[in-house]
């Protein structure tokens, strides 16, 4: 029905090419006919659908699926991997008595129950009546029953332990390259796999932090209340300092205070405390100081307060994140 030239004009028109004066006149003549209108409509749809087909055809779904499939099975064994970037805190809150006890270097496999928690603040009861509260991305492994002369668990990540006293059976927490030993106490252990340091903060009581890295099994520091012990995972250096930063325990206590703290550090603290992601536009001055304290507030509230106080703009993003920029 349509002549070759007429098809050319329709194709040109649908390709957003400029029509000449004659072509334009011809096109207007054509569309007066209802049948041609229908054909042009179908042509537009044809172009649209073939364009979409060609667009979709660039993507190789098969190879993409293979890639995703592999990643799925990889992540099964390392399910907390994305959350591991937080600095490690070995926070020990010791309430009970403590006896000096020599570490037995033993690695005999015990049947374990693995408690994995990806989200923060979940409490788990241990077989001896002790409890453990896990921070996000953390995992603790323990046997169905504590047999033998010790109570041994392994930890990746950060956790708060509340240990039932038992002088006959010391409680040992093994982590990657460090051990913590107590007889009965409550304390918080944080030892993320990929972090540079293991830190122990003691509130009350007495705790020992052992360097169990290769060849240095006997090295330890004894920590008293208010002290921080640090084990550097690379240099294997054990350090003791006489103070601690309460904000590092905020994930558990939900108590945060800033005292003339640079904004950059404020966001770092909040990221750790709430397992949130804070992205900062590079226009924002992160050296400006904030003084404020928060008790049991949710991160949205805190970010709102910061935004108002410092006159910056905070937007919530997907997955509990925040984006900070100047107003």
């Amino acid at each position: 029905m349509l002549k070759g030239d007429q098809w050319n004009i329709i194709a040109k028109r649908l390709s957003n090419e400029k029509l000449s004066v004659e072509e334009k006149a011809e096109f207007e003549k054509m569309i007066a006919d209802e049948n041609v209108q229908r054909i042009i409509g179908q042509s537009e749809k044809t172009f649209e659908k073939t364009g979409l087909f060609l667009g979709l055809d660039q993507y190789n779904t098969n190879s993409a699926w293979e890639k995703v499939d592999r990643a799925m099975s990889r992540r099964k064994t390392m399910s907390f991997r994305p959350l591991l970037r937080i600095a490690a805190v070995f926070f020990l809150l010791v309430a009970g008595g403590f006896a000096v006890w020599k570490m037995a270097v033993q690695n005999k496999p015990v049947p374990v129950i693995a408690a994995h928690y990806l989200e923060g603040n979940t409490q788990q009861l241990l077989p001896d009546g002790s409890t453990v509260t896990l921070n996000h991305g953390s995992e603790v492994k323990f046997p169905k029953k504590f047999t033998g002369t010790t109570r041994e668990v392994t930890l990746v990540g950060e956790a708060f332990f509340n240990i039932k006293p038992d002088t006959e059976k010391p409680f040992i927490i093994k982590t990657n390259g460090a051990s913590v030993k107590v007889l009965g106490t409550s304390f918080n252990v944080c030892a993320y796999n990929e972090s540079e340091t293991v830190e122990v903060i003691v509130k009350t009581g007495k705790v020992e932090l052992f360097n169990t890295g290769a060849g240095k099994a006997e090295e330890k520091v004894v920590l008293m209340p208010g002290q921080t012990g640090t084990l550097n995972m690379y240099t294997r250096e054990l350090l003791r300092t006489d103070n601690y930063n309460p904000n590092k325990l905020a994930w558990y206590t939900r108590e945060i205070s800033f005292n003339y703290t640079p904004l950059g550090e404020v966001f770092e603290t909040l990221q750790h405390a709430y397992n949130i992601r804070v992205d900062i536009d590079n226009q924002v001055d992160t050296s400006q100081k904030l003084t404020a304290s928060f008790s049991k507030q949710d991160p949205e509230y805190i970010m709102d307060v910061i935004a108002l106080t410092l006159d910056i703009k905070v937007d919530q993003t997907e997955n509990n994140g925040f984006f900070v920029q100047n107003n």
């Binding site: 030239d5 098809w7 004009i9 329709i10 194709a11 649908l14 179908q42």
Partner: peptide, 11 residues
């Protein structure tokens, strides 16, 4: 011409 023909064929 080729675009016009392609359109005609495909439609």
């Amino acid at each position: 011409t080729q675009m016009g023909q392609a359109l005609k064929d495909l439609r």
